[in-house]
C-alpha cells in the first residue's frame, strides 16, 4: 500500500483492510472476525456430532470386535451378523437398482419433458412423498404388500417400500443436476444433428452425473439406516436371506442396533456395537466408491 497516509499502515498488520486514505478500516476488521467466527462455529456444529458419533461407535465396537461376526449367522445366543450383513447388502443392491432407475428416469422426465402444469403437479407429488414419515410408508407397505398381496415379510416388500421412500430424493437431484447442465452443451449437440436421446445419453447425463450421484448416495444412506419401514416389511430373520423375493423374512443391521442394544446379555450388546460399526463402514465405502466413479467420469469436464 504505497499511498498509506498518516503513518497508520506502519502500526497495523500487513493484511489489515485500509480505507481510501490508507487508514485502517476497523469496522471491516471487526466484520471479518465476526464472519470467520460464525463460519468456525458452523463447522464445529457439524463436525462435533459427527466426531461424537464416530467416537461412540468405534469406542464401543472395537474392544468387543470379533472377525467371526462377519462370517457367522445369528443364533439364539448371539452368534454373528453374516445374515444381517447379507440382508442389508441385498436391500442396498435392490433399492439401488429399483429406486435408482425409477428416480433417475423421473428426474429426466421432470427436467426434459414435463412442461407447465404437468411438471408442477408431479414435482408437488414427489415432494409430498418425500415428506411422508417413513413409519407411515412402512405401515402402508405392510398393509398393501405384506397383507393384501400375501407376500408376508419379504425382500420384495422391503425393497418397494424403501424405494418409495427414496425415489423423490433421486428424482429431485437428477432434475436439478440436469437443469444445471449448460445450454451450450445442448445447443452444440443439437446443431451437430445429434438426436435428443443421444445428446442426453452422451452429454447431458454425463455432465449431470455428480449431482445425480449425490441424490443416489442420500438414497443409499437412507436405505442402509432406515429401521421403521423395514420392521413392517422385511420382518427379521436369524438365518441368511433366501433368494426368493417374497414369503421369506430378511435380517438387516439397523434392527440389530436397535433391538440387541437393550438385551441384558453381553453377547447381544456387543453385536449391536459391531452392527453399528459395520453400518458406518458401509456408508463410508459407498461415499468413496461414488467419489471414484464421479472423478472418473468427470475427467473431461470444465472443473478439472
Amino acid at each position: 500500500m504505497t499511498t498509506a497516509g498518516a503513518g497508520a499502515a506502519g502500526r497495523v498488520p500487513d493484511n489489515t483492510p485500509l480505507d481510501l486514505y490508507g487508514r485502517p478500516a476497523w469496522h471491516r476488521v471487526a466484520a471479518g472476525y465476526v464472519g470467520w467466527g460464525a463460519c468456525g462455529l458452523a463447522v464445529a456444529l457439524i463436525a462435533a456430532p459427527l466426531a461424537s458419533v464416530l467416537w461412540g461407535v468405534i469406542g464401543r465396537a472395537v474392544p468387543v470386535w470379533r472377525w467371526s461376526v462377519l462370517t457367522e449367522a445369528g443364533n439364539g445366543q448371539g452368534g454373528g451378523l453374516a445374515n444381517e450383513i447379507v440382508g442389508t447388502l441385498f436391500i442396498l443392491a435392490g433399492v439401488s437398482v429399483l429406486a435408482g432407475s425409477v428416480g433417475v428416469l423421473s428426474g429426466i422426465y421432470l427436467s426434459e419433458y414435463a412442461r407447465g402444469r404437468t411438471g408442477a403437479v408431479l414435482r408437488g407429488a414427489s415432494e409430498v412423498l418425500a415428506g411422508i414419515p417413513s413409519i407411515v410408508l412402512g405401515y402402508v407397505g405392510y398393509i398393501a404388500l405384506v397383507i393384501a398381496l400375501h407376500w408376508q415379510y419379504s425382500l420384495a416388500a422391503a425393497l418397494i417400500t424403501l424405494s418409495a421412500l427414496t425415489v423423490p430424493y433421486i428424482a429431485k437431484s437428477t432434475e436439478a443436476a440436469l437443469r444445471q447442465v449448460p445450454t451450450t452443451y445442448r445447443e452444440g449437440a443439437e446443431a451437430l444433428g445429434m438426436s435428443p436421446l443421444r445428446s442426453l445419453r452422451r452429454i447431458t447425463l454425463k455432465a449431470a452425473l455428480p449431482g445425480i450421484t449425490t441424490g443416489w448416495l442420500v438414497a443409499m444412506a437412507i436405505s442402509v439406516g432406515e429401521t421403521a419401514p423395514l420392521l413392517y416389511t422385511a420382518g427379521f430373520s436369524d438365518s441368511l436371506p433366501s433368494l426368493s423375493l417374497t414369503h421369506s423374512p430378511v435380517g438387516y443391521l439397523p434392527y440389530v442396533v436397535w433391538t440387541f442394544y437393550n438385551y441384558p446379555a453381553k453377547a447381544f450388546q456387543s453385536l449391536s456395537y459391531d452392527a453399528a460399526l459395520i453400518l458406518v463402514v458401509m456408508v463410508l465405502v459407498l461415499i468413496v466408491l461414488a467419489r471414484i466413479v464421479v472423478a472418473f467420469t468427470q475427467r473431461h469436464t470444465e472443473r478439472n
Binding site: 449448460p182 451450450t184 452443451y185 445447443e187 452444440g188 452422451r202 454425463k206 455432465a207 473431461h300 470444465e302
Partner: peptide
C-alpha cells in the same frame, strides 16, 4: 457458436 462449446469428453 460465438463462445467455444466443446463437449465434456
Amino acid at each position: 457458436f460465438q463462445r467455444p462449446n466443446p463437449f465434456p469428453m
